[in-house]
Write a protein that binds this DNA or RNA. Structure first.
Length: 278
DNA sequence: ATAAGCCCCTGCTGGC
DNA sequence: TGCCAGCAGGGGCTTA
């Protein structure tokens, strides 16, 4: 159930657990997740060494030797868990992919991918042309990159008539801002989520800072709550992050104590303070 | 071109 | 206690 902070936390855990290991057998326990696994998926991966684990938007990128990248998206319910040799469990319900890994001595084991809802995705891509891949070609900047500047955000907001909240969630504008952090950032910037994006452009600087602040705080929080992700098999893959507005309908606003509201925008829940956010 | 709606799938919760 | 509607943090596709 990841937004960018959890994906980043998973990435860091994978770097520690599987970087440098070589993929042996790959077991597909079904033919598809959100989309079918590509032809030759397991055969292509067999024998490849994991050189690095990177991230673009909410996609995990397992950089492999020989120029290939394993692209993985967790969807809403996807989880990776690493199990050391000798402690590899029998496959359980919704364990869809199992990567056998071998490397230096004790580091061998198996990486499991579990995804109850199967909104996740795995595919293969050429590392050299990753940016042109259909999944990535139209993505906006990473929120912590220099490309995501105040001026850029202001221009993007000015160009849109849609409400500012779904605009923030549009990956063509900026990647990694999901439903929770869109609400959180708008609260922090004191912007009404229903306000047209172009009308919120005047608060671009505050919003830019708020987006970075909520994401950075969540990464820090996720990093600490997931420190033992690898050794305990991924069962703690949730944030214990204190949200200011998300999921707090009816509770008092942390700033003004008036009750928080819930609305629905583009089919998703929005939480906000009517008094603070204009 | 932008924007809204629909859909994929399973699990959990809350109300009756 | 059981049942069922509604909802869930993503995102791509279709429709207007």
């Amino acid at each position: 159930m990841p937004e960018l902070p959890e994906v980043e936390t998973v990435r860091r855990a994978l770097e520690r657990s599987v970087r440098g290991l070589t993929i042996g057998g790959v077991t597909l326990r079904r033919g598809d997740l959100r989309a079918p696994f590509p032809q030759g998926f397991a055969a292509t991966l067999a024998g490849r060494r994991i050189v690095a684990v990177d991230r673009r938007a909410k996609y995990l990128l397992f950089q492999l030797d020989e120029g290939k990248t394993l692209v993985a998206h967790l969807g809403m319910s996807g989880r990776f868990s690493f199990h050391a040799q000798g402690a590899v469990p029998a496959p359980a319900l919704h364990d869809h992919v199992i990567f056998e890994l071998h490397g230096g001595g004790e580091s061998a084991g198996a990486l499991f991918y579990n995804d109850a809802r199967r909104f996740g995705l795995m595919t293969l891509a050429e590392t050299a042309s990753l940016a042109e891949h259909p999944l990535f070609a139209k993505l906006g900047p990473e929120p912590f990159s220099p490309d995501f500047s105040v001026a850029y955000l202001r221009r993007a907001l000015e160009a849109r008539a849609a409400p500012v909240k779904p605009t923030l969630m549009d990956a063509a504008v900026v990647v990694g801002v999901g439903n929770i952090y869109a609400s959180e950032a708008l609260f922090l910037a004191r912007i009404d989520p229903a306000k047209p994006a172009r009308a919120a452009a005047g608060k671009a600087e505050a919003l830019h800072g708020a987006i970075r602040q909520v994401l950075a705080a969540a990464i820090e929080s996720g990093g600490s709550s997931l420190r033992d992700f690898v050794s305990i098999g991924g069962e703690t893959g949730y944030f214990q992050h204190a949200f200011q507005v998300y999921g707090r309908e009816g509770e008092p606003c942390a700033a003004c104590a008036s009750p928080l509201f819930r609305s629905v925008q583009a089919g998703r829940s929005t939480f906000f303070c009517k008094a603070c956010q204009k």
